[in-house]
Design a protein around this nucleic acid. Structure first.
Lengths: 334, 334
DNA sequence: CTGAAAGCGCTTACAG
DNA sequence: CTGAAAGCGCTTACAG
């Protein structure tokens, strides 16, 4: 790879002049400039971004830490992040933790070592200290989907309203006994949807039933098994609310296997919708999460924070919080 | 962030000694070593990987360029890549091109500027020259899923056999007139599945019908529309073969909307399976692609290539090619 | 308008 | 066993 030096030699000027010409960072005589451009072109010169980064103290890279990608909302969010980041001149590094705190710790430790200017994370909640440390060391941090520390910026959806809206919607549809499939209450999205749902349930006088399983939460099997159990225990169940789409798919499967008719006998609604709900034999009603926009927003937020002049003085900027409304997409399961 | 210099000062030694002690790169007196470790710990020292990379000419980063993530096989492959890369001490950068050659070009141009040691790409096929250039400049390149240049290493699946196997399977199931939904023949997976399918069709004396649409190929709508058209034109169709899962979902939808019974009246099979096929009301038979393993394999292959001693002399190592078998997962749509 | 010099944070021959 | 020096490829005050 050709370097600045090579270009300088060919153009018979100093490297500093080449740098200035190529970056348009101060006036350079047109003739000199032309010579430099010609030389750069001839050599196929591309600046070494690593050296630039080292020199300037900016890496133009953000790290994204999420539990997993396939069949989750995160693959869509990640695309939003990556697109916006690229548009703003940033690279996107990705880590998938499978929600294992140890893996997450390893990822974060590696990322902090000077490779990224900022980290967007949908975390396990088990590395709160480390995250604070990282932020204190000058790397911006934005929480994604899951908010666990109000001192760190965040981009989330309004899960509480989502849970309440879902309950109200089912009530209006005539449901009176709703099964609720969720996940670990350590994680804010599950907790908040539950809270919102419960509050609405009280107000409306709905009956609610719950179920859990030892399986991985964000999975088809989890939804399937929870639905099975609730259907076993409550023959008069008339709706199932699932936290995420894949659980909803599991519930639909469990319900249809019993020969129950959706939506006539029982309705199924997911509370974290992404496109898959619309691709089914019986399309699934869901609270759609504006995943792409949330990703873009997170990228924008963290890059703004990175570029804040205050950072230079080692000051930590005040955390920003952005919350997106989830919107009901009515389909065939309700 | 503390630097080597800070540690050296605190431990009262030269930076070179600190470097040697911390990297275990040559003998350091135990006492000195202890002092250095203590100092590093006290300051919370973490080496700046950027500086290391610049100095050593290794970035320990690979770039991954794919069309898109959500609802495609690529999100699963990417997880395989990322996991294996992390295990081997590498970071993973991601770019989604939406199969737009211009976006792809932009991504590649940025990646080549010294940020990655290697690039894994599922490309549009429109930037072949650039890819060659990149490889010639010392960055390893591995083609993923789509093989378009035999001079570049590749990790793919055996699509030809896949297409043939699918045809034979349907024949054995009693089907005689099969609709085939595919994509652009510029891309090897579509082309090869088609070739394999066609060959088998000839041998078996099957009837085949085809359809196309102006919509984006890798989508539910594409599958839906193609299926509609084929069903309109051929009332005796008894099977539909879709190139990818989301097309298959579209086909299932189109078929059931007409009140046709799956699999009794018509069978539907996807030729690029990932988990979603098993999560349906009527689960979909598919040729499953070992996406996770393919991702791991691609990561392993490129990292081995990066670390090849020959690279140092500017030599380009001989391309490696690895092909994975797709295996039939029989489910309920057939 | 442009060159010479310092420095970003490391590593690694070269001495001793 | 450890220090001093050079250098990875850039940028940016500082002169002139």
């Amino acid at each position: 790879m050709a370097t600045l030096k090579d270009v300088a030699r060919l153009a018979c000027v100093d490297v500093s002049t080449v740098s200035r010409a190529l970056n348009n960072t101060s006036y350079v005589h047109p003739d000199t400039k032309a010579r430099i451009y010609a030389a750069a072109k001839e050599l196929g010169y591309h600046p070494n971004v690593l050296a630039q980064a080292l020199r300037q103290g900016k890496r133009h890279t953000i790290g994204v830490v999420v539990p997993r990608l396939h069949m989750t909302i995160f693959s869509e969010i990640l695309q939003g992040i990556e697109g916006k980041a690229r548009q703003l001149g940033y690279y996107t590094l990705i880590c998938a933790t499978e929600d294992d705190p140890k893996t997450e710790k390893e990822c974060l430790s590696r990322l902090r070592n000077g490779f990224v200017d900022g980290i967007i994370i949908a975390g396990t909640g088990r590395n709160g200290r480390l995250l604070r440390d990282i932020q204190a060391s000058g790397i911006s941090v934005v929480q994604l989907v899951r908010r666990q520390d109000s001192q760190l910026s965040s981009v989330v959806a309004d899960y509480k309203t989502c849970g309440a809206d879902a309950a109200r919607y089912l009530y209006d549809k005539g449901c009176r006994k709703v099964g609720f499939i969720s996940g670990s209450f350590h994680l804010s999205p599950y907790k908040e949807r539950f809270d919102g749902f419960n509050k609405a349930v009280q107000e409306l006088g709905l009956q609610a039933v719950f179920s859990q399983s030892d399986l991985a939460v964000n999975s088809f099997e989890y939804g399937y098994q929870c639905a099975q159990q609730m259907l076993d225990d409550h023959s008069d169940l008339d709706a199932i609310l699932a936290a995420v789409d894949v659980q909803g798919l599991g519930a639909i499967r469990a319900v249809t296997e019993r020969g129950l008719k959706i939506p006539r006998q029982i309705k199924v609604v997911s509370m974290t919708g992404h496109e898959v709900g619309g691709m089914l034999q019986t399309t699934m009603t869901s609270m759609e999460m504006p995943a792409h926009r949330m990703g873009e927003s997170a990228a924008q937020m963290i890059i703004e924070e990175i570029q804040l002049p205050a950072r230079k003085d080692g000051q930590i900027p005040a955390p920003q919080h952005r919350s997106f409304a989830m919107v009901l997409e009515e389909r065939e399961t309700s």
